[in-house]
Design a protein around this nucleic acid. Structure first.
Length: 422
RNA sequence: GGAGGGGUGGCAGAGUGGUCGAAUGCGUCAGUCUUGAAAACUGAAGUCUCGGAAACGGGACCGUGGGUUCGAAUCCCACCCCCUCCGCCA
């Protein structure tokens, strides 16, 4: 959510931002509703003031005088309740629109409608070449006893899977390496709830727009698609200690996604699943654009370093306007090389929000001058499993169907080769 | 699941219909004292919002939303959350 004052003063910038993000929103309508809101508010305040004055007089009055005053108060009240009703209606419309106003994308964000227009800004590593017919992760993992998709489907339905044997070892190893790697960079590890109340989803910007992609319980909670939701909710409605900035959290959680809009995409394998596990970098920082930009680069680099540790070739793309979420100012996707698809697939998504999320969540801090400000927030994937495993097994596959373990993971896996020769 | 208790400022905690935006204590900040610090003493300080250049003035905020009343932190209803005990389960 943006500040209404800011929206009013910068309507053109907001409109331009919405256009760039391909978000359909009528800012002029919002402003005219806000005019109504302000007028009504003013009228209500005046009535209220009158009422307060009168009830003060009534308190002191006695007998007939009092009776008369109480009587005339009734008229004041009637006018007020009419105003209140109008105000309520206006506010409803106001809030609905306010939740839809997108944050302004950064100047450096390229134009474009969908991920097809994302721009590659750098690549790292060398894509493997195979002297034999390379297999995809489904075949590799199935044969190596690392995953079972058939029984996954039987038990869990569409997109269901079991990880087993060396697949579990590898997932655990990646998880442990991630924990070590990010803790070294000052992140505090957290295990956070996935079952989260609606409020926090509104605050992080996943609702009201993302209703379709969320699982919901019969008790009204939602299942989070990322640990970011609970982590951001952690300090909801609090004034945090600004001296601790930047606060860096490494959140672990199961993640659930309905993938409602992607039924035909990645229907096989571990690329797109309904439930998975993820370490997520989440940061709260002081309200400074320059600071956010710097941290954004840092979070991105953290993830790149992690992929480099495992020697996975990757590229970094800057997402175009149309591929940005409502609250995101700028986003980089990091995509690792996927031999079976002859392309890069997303492993990390790094973005910053300015105070878009913290305004909704009401997370503030006090500046040294004593001013209360909304903090800035950022996040980026740290390690998503099992998706990351698909790149690992495909890039490190050998002719006999076994999989070499990247050196950095060997201590955690406990061996150098996964699977058994065919 | 059953029974009960409770949600008040940064924190603790009073307040059960009328100058209550809210006592008191702790903490915070400024000053006095001190070579410096501590202690002691003196003083300051909530948040949001509207008008205003400012001084200042209006309005809102005591978990959330409704209601009763001329007037609600205080009474009534619903919901959310926390705590204690019992039961059940891990």
């Amino acid at each position: 959510m943006l500040d209404i004052q800011f929206i009013r003063e910068n309507a053109d910038v907001i409109k331009e931002g919405a256009r760039k993000k391909h978000v359909d929103i009528d800012i002029d309508k919002l402003i005219s509703i806000d005019d109504k809101r302000k007028t009504l508010r003013g009228q209500m305040d005046e009535k209220k003031a009158e009422q307060n004055r009168m009830s003060n007089t009534i308190m002191r009055a006695e007998g007939d005088e009092r009776q008369r005053l109480v009587e005339s108060m009734r008229h004041v009240k009637q006018g007020l309740s009419e105003l209140e009703e109008q105000y309520k209606a206006v506010m409803q419309e106001w809030q609905l629109l306010m939740l839809q106003v997108p944050n302004i994308p950064d100047f450096s964000v390229p134009e474009g409608e969908s991920d097809a227009q994302n721009e590659t800004i750098r690549t790292w590593g060398e894509n493997p070449t195979f002297s034999f017919p390379a297999k995809d992760h489904i075949e590799l993992m199935t044969k190596a006893g690392m995953a079972d998709f058939e029984r996954g489907g039987k038990v869990a339905g569409f997109r269901g899977y079991f990880l087993k044997g060396d697949g579990v070892l590898l997932a655990n190893a990646v998880s442990q390496l991630a924990l070590k790697h990010f803790m070294e960079r000052g992140f505090e590890p957290m295990m956070v709830p996935s079952l989260v109340r609606r409020e926090t989803f509104l605050g992080t910007g996943y609702l009201p727009q993302g209703e379709e992609d969320l699982y919901k319980t019969q008790d009204g909670e939602y299942l989070a698609g990322t640990g970011e939701v609970a982590t951001m909710g952690y300090y909801m409605d609090e004034i945090v200690d600004g001296a601790q900035f930047p606060m860096k959290f490494l959140s672990y959680s199961p993640c659930f996604r309905r993938e409602a809009g992607s039924h035909s995409k990645d229907t096989k394998g571990l690329i797109r699943v309904h439930e998975f596990f993820k370490w997520e970098q989440v940061v709260l920082a002081e309200a400074s654009h320059a600071g956010s930009v710097e941290l954004h680069e840092e979070l991105t680099k953290n993830a790149e370093d992690f992929l480099q540790l495992m020697k996975l070739p990757y590229r970094v793309v800057v997402n175009c306007g149309g591929d940005l979420g409502l609250g995101q100012v700028k986003k980089y996707d990091i995509e690792a090389w996927m031999p079976s698809q002859d392309t890069y697939r997303e492993t990390h998504s790094s973005s910053y929000f300015h105070d878009f999320q913290t305004r909704r969540l009401n997370i503030r801090y006090r500046t040294p001058e004593g001013k209360l400000l909304f903090a800035h927030s950022l996040n980026n994937t740290a390690a998503a499993m099992p998706r990351l495993l698909t790149m690992l097994v495909e890039n490190y596959q050998q002719e006999d169907g076994t999989i070499r373990v990247p050196e950095a993971l060997v201590p955690y896996v406990g061996k150098q080769v996964l699977g058994r020769p065919a």
